[in-house]
Design a protein around this nucleic acid. Structure first.
Lengths: 342, 342
DNA sequence: TTGAAAGCGCTACCAT
DNA sequence: ATGGTAGCGCTTTCAA
């Protein structure tokens, strides 16, 4: 197919060759000048960058990838859209990507595992690495990545078998919540948790109950509910319907979005929060801090987590065989009116 | 750099050439066989696809793009993460992309305009087109796309000057809301709107007030508030503080997330919704249908909008010079308890 | 029905 | 300090 077909003969995009002819130098000189190679004379460099600007040259990232092996593209996999946490993670990732000059390929959203086909997209588009937040990765998909040296970093969930990850210190954070509830006089506890135990959920639950156990409290009620607002609301209704003697006076919902549902569910059934029951969550979503909730929770340092995750990824892009690295960052206890009134 | 450096000599990825040697045919035959070219004999085709499977061949999308011109990549630009609408749009777009076999490059999130640098990424990664939802595109960025024949389709906002777009019929939808409020006996109206008037906001506002005007109601109160929950909450407080005679008995918040804030703000100030004031929104977010809100609103047919948007994009990928096309889809009125009790 | 070869745009290497 | 050239992996003519 030549230039002459079609109604309008549109100008072909300007490439390094175009510029090289314009400047009367070799293509390689163009490349070097534009990427700031110190061996190029200031004069030549200036002439070339002037030309590049004038002709609106934009490098073709694909061609570059083909010859250099690096695409500047990172894959990202997000958890379900029903949890605002992932919107915030995505936003943080976008900002971080921009600051380090790379782009994000959206691969998957949802609770289900990332499938084989998605993993193949990682290869097809030659991503330099992939950020996995929450959604589990299928073993087949993980194999594909390993076989092809695509670095993977998990955020907000630990790698099941091996791999690098960045997480909030879920155990310690949950411990802070337990201590706070004990200090404010609560004695009868319930944990609302997702039925399938992710590492994150497990750590939060254990961190919570261990502190209680240390304080001599053993019997913690456990209720299984999927992790959305709707399920939390339903759980709130169930808690509200309990007999006087059975009803807990403090509830730890393993995520904020769940906790928000619990609060609404309790209130809809006439239970006062925090007077009758205190509710605490985990994540530190901005939504959970609205006046209607003022949720006591542990704030995950999302931006820092994302920053670290990209650092791990970048390092493994340069050297795939670096050993796995695990980063745990402390969360900050936010005390709101969902657990005490003053 | 040869294969021999590094600790482990990892196998080079299998390519068409690898397969061609294995099968004893030319590389072009591999390409043809794998893409189902009818000229290849069934026997050869089968042998080749068996080999491809056996050796785990994955085509390199970048190399393909370089020679064919099509990347199978679409850019996407989203509005601010504080509005769940965009999470739902993103999810719908992911599903649609999967069903047509392409991938999404996340370009920008937020209210600010998509900048020049982002537009350049469209060229660098040779995207086949770009979906713009809500965030305005800078004129410079639009120029870049036009000059380089990158098709653009807007969703949920009309193109300012020219360009294709898909939107919900905002005027008609808002009209439905007005009619409903009139039918349920409301007579004193307020519109809560964002200070900067987007086309979407304008259409909704006009569609609403025109129906009111037809019913002989002229004096509609207008309050300017940015479009998040927080601002809605503040607006609710302001409405609650109004004098008996001035207070409207029905409020149209131009988006659901804003309406949710308004409801919470009113209730926090002791105003009953819907008894004292009816509140309606626009979007049809799942969040707005929670028992705590049960918002009366107009549901945008998001999945269908996204489907149409991709169709427009695909068509313009094949022929950039197709005329602009505008699609408007009707929204569905959802009547909830935020506007009437029964 | 298949092969050969050119070329997409860029970079890296080896010369000079 | 700069030029020349091969090659990344795939597709697409043109030939056979």
């Amino acid at each position: 197919m030549t230039q002459e077909d079609g109604a309008a003969a549109r100008p072909r995009r300007v490439t390094v060759v175009t510029l090289s002819k314009l400047a009367g130098v070799a293509p390689s000189t163009i490349t070097r000048a534009l990427k700031g190679d110190p061996r190029i004379s200031p004069k030549t460099r200036e002439k070339i960058s002037a030309l590049a600007k004038e002709y609106g040259y934009t490098p073709n990232a694909l061609a570059r990838t083909l010859s250099s092996g690096r695409s500047g593209l990172y894959g990202i996999v997000l958890g379900p859209e029903s949890n605002p946490l992932y919107s915030h993670i995505l936003h943080a990732a976008m900002d971080e990507a921009e600051s380090i000059g790379c782009r994000l390929l959206m691969l998957h959203i949802g609770m289900e595992q990332m499938d084989e086909k998605t993993a193949e997209a990682l290869l097809q588009y030659q991503v330099d690495g992939c950020l996995i937040t929450s959604a589990a990765i299928g073993s087949r998909a993980a194999d594909i990545c390993r076989e092809n040296n695509v670095p993977l970093v998990m955020v907000n969930r630990v790698a099941e078998r091996h791999g690098s990850f960045v997480s909030c210190d879920n155990r310690a954070g949950a411990g802070l919540l337990a201590k706070h509830l004990l200090q404010t006089g609560r004695r009868k506890f319930a944990v609302i948790r997702p039925p399938q135990t992710s590492s994150t959920a497990r750590d939060r639950e254990n961190g919570f109950t261990e502190v209680l156990a240390d304080a001599g409290i053993a019997g913690v009620m456990r209720l299984n509910y999927a992790s959305g607002w709707d399920e939390g609301y339903a759980a709130g209704g169930v808690l509200a319907g309990m007999l006087e003697g059975e009803q807990p006076d403090a509830v730890f919902a393993l995520s904020d979005i769940l906790a928000m549902g619990v609060i609404d569910g309790l209130r809809a059934a006439g239970i006062r929060v925090p007077q009758d029951i205190a509710v605490v969550g985990f994540d530190g979503l901005p939504e959970s801090q609205r006046p209607t909730y003022q949720l006591t929770t542990v704030e995950q340092p999302i931006r820092m987590m994302i920053n670290r995750a990209f650092k791990l990824l970048e390092a493994r892009t340069k050297d795939y065989f670096l050993p796995d690295e695990q980063v745990s960052l402390g969360g900050r206890l936010l005390i709101g009116k969902s657990s005490q009134l003053t």
